[in-house]
Design a protein around this nucleic acid. Structure first.
Lengths: 231, 231
DNA sequence: GCAAAAGTGTTAACTTTACACCCATGT
DNA sequence: ACATGGGTGTAAAGTTAACACTTTTGC
């Protein structure tokens, strides 16, 4: 297997990101169009070779930032992929990360400062992707599905303020189940993780729902005491 | 940051293994004494640079085999570690795996075909380790602790046949809790994951306990139907 | 006034927890 | 006969699941 040395980056491993967003009642993943070989013109997960001078976590943050302009985002390592033939130009291991980002409530407007053309794609009907990116994306979906059951990461996908119905729809979309409205509300409210806002929904053509915020501080406290959020 | 090229392996990433065993009522981890620099004479997790010609999963299997002579062992990727300064000779990313191996019931005799001197160490009182291996080991312990709650991996640590009390002690050791004997038995037996053996314990100076086997086939069936083992 | 989603309680089924004594075997 | 761990059931507390109608608001 030939080993290609790239002039500037000088590295044999890359970082790829599965970036999740929630919109129109669906879990979405941010994809890019590749405009250089290999896999030119293919859709792919955003990623890049890593510099020798940065920790891998930093490389993931950088990729995410270059693509979305966002910092301070929920970002975790997902899994590493190292089949010898996964990259046509030689041995390149990739360390995959997954990120969860908020999108403005009313907005379908994608994030702004792109390095490449990026677009959201429904997580449950992904197109063909370059390299082994389908495998990586599936691992990401599997992870977020498991994680959401025992950590309150769902809030990362919603705007600062949200209604209980929005939250329920999010859980239903990710877990692909129906949830009973009354039971859901009882459970989520009894967890003390939500702060009731004084505001209500605006511009809806029906009774406006109360808005809530996630109480991060309370969550940290509870977690220290051994509390585990469970839906 | 200097980048050292090794003549034969020609690779910038390594594979390290957290190998778990259970013995004398304790969770143990297999360590080696390093006999070359860097960190010569330090204790460390078994690991090695990976060849360019093997998938990373294969590299992990190889490391495990070289050290223990074992194949077909429970082995999963754990996490990748990529701080730039984790290796004194330059940028080396490591992909950590964890393995769970059975040790013969009565036996404290360690595995045989060593590449290096290896020895078991209690997981909850690890010594100083080379590189960032303490961090890796801790991640492994955290993982096995979480995993054992919702997958029946405990059986991988026990001999083919075991008593319910042995199984209970194993859970107690890993989860660091006490478990009620009657509740534990009720729960574990009602899961239908155990096959009652006709045999009983031998050579104990008290009433001999019935032996059980883990029913792997039944577990796979149940799992397909969406069953999740939970202690 | 009607369409659309918000909001609200009770009961039965199930799961989890707490708890103590007799039994079989080896010395 | 005694020491050691093996083996067993029940009741109370807590959790989950099933289920339907009234309220508010905009059009």
């Amino acid at each position: 297997m030939a080993r290609i040395k790239l002039p500037t980056l000088h590295s044999d491993f890359s970082v790829d990101c599965v970036i999740f967003g929630f919109d129109a009642g669906e879990l979405k993943i941010l994809l890019i169009d590749r405009n250089e070989p290999p896999y030119k013109k293919w859709k792919a997960l955003p990623g890049n070779l890593a510099y020798d001078t940065e920790d891998i976590d930093e490389a993931a943050k950088r990729v995410l930032y270059e693509l979305t302009g966002l910092k301070n985002v929920y970002l975790e390592q997902l899994y590493s992929f190292g089949k010898i033939d996964r990259h046509p130009q030689g041995r390149v291991i990739t360390i995959a990360y997954y990120a969860i980002i908020k999108r403005s409530d009313n907005g379908l407007h994608p994030v702004t400062t792109f390095a490449k053309k990026a677009f959201w794609w429904p997580a449950n009907s992904l197109p063909k992707l370059a390299f082994d990116h389908i495998e990586i994306a599936k691992k990401g979906i599997e992870r977020i599905r498991n994680k959401i059951r025992y950590e309150p990461i769902g809030f990362e996908l919603l705007p600062e303020q949200f209604t209980l119905t929005q939250l329920q729809h999010l859980y239903e979309a990710i877990l692909e189940t129906e949830i009973d409205k009354r039971n859901f509300r009882k459970k989520i409210l009894s967890s003390e993780l939500l702060i009731e806002s004084k505001n209500k929904q605006k511009d809806v053509s029906h009774r406006a729902a109360r808005l809530y915020k996630f109480n991060k501080i309370r969550y940290r406290e509870l977690k220290k005491g051994g509390f585990v959020f469970k839906l």
